[in-house]
Amino acid sequence: MSSTLARRDGLRAATMISPAYIWLTVAVFLPLAAMLFFSFLSEAPFGDREWFVTAANYMEFFEKGFYLKLLVRSLTLGLVVTGFCILIGFPCAFVLAKTIKGRWREALFLLVILPFWSNSLVRIFSWAIVLRGNGVIDSVLDLILPFEVSVNLMFSYPAIVIGLVHSYLPYVILTSYLALQAIDDNLIDAARSMGAPRRMILWRIIIPLALPGLIAGAVLIFVPVVGSFMEPRILGGRSGTFFGTVIEDQFVAVFNWPLGAALSFILLGVVLLILAVSSPVLRRAQ
């Protein structure tokens, strides 16, 4: 009796869970598996091309020093962009969650999400207009300052960082906002009544309690930035060569899908490794 019940329960659970797993299989697992398969081929298996299974694509990464160099460069970019996003986003989220109340909060919140409604390519191109010499920044500074200035950030590393920070800032604001909002105001009042200085409240109460949100935001930003290629290409000019752009070249410019796939999986592996190594630290922080 009980066994049939258990079986029925199991069946019901399977029916309820299966949509999620089917979705995961179709949308995540299958494309990834196809790419993993490609990464071990000698040629992209289209048309009449002859191909065989090989690990040469992965070996290439280790044989050619410049891939590693670019990977380090991309990881550094990820860290820099994530750092700036936190430095700017966390205070924003704090003001939004704790200082501003009522209608204003909704209005400001809308402004934070607003950039998300436009296409990212459009945002990057508008930055190109702002950053270039004789562009918006240049003209405005010329109007205000009595002496001639020339600000031309376009086609440089700072331009890439500015574009990426602007693109990904909302993630950190949204996740931090949710975490900050959950902090009981009484905790802060209690600390204050016991004479804790502001800095101590920040470091001992607010940041530890908001850390899960902050970390979620940081991970959400770090991972796509490391693989970014469109922003560096448009804003970076000559300094826009990153691991992501090299992967894109393999797919788009020379039709070497196997090497592109192998480089992508190396990137995926390195990012997962970084997250795995840092997870105990992050868990303790939580």
Binding site: K64, F66, Y67, K69, L70, R73, R238, S239, T241, V246, D249
Partner: peptide, 8 residues
């Protein structure tokens, strides 16, 4: 690609 990477 190598030249570009080394010129960064």
């Amino acid at each position: 690609q190598e030249l570009k990477a080394n010129a960064q």
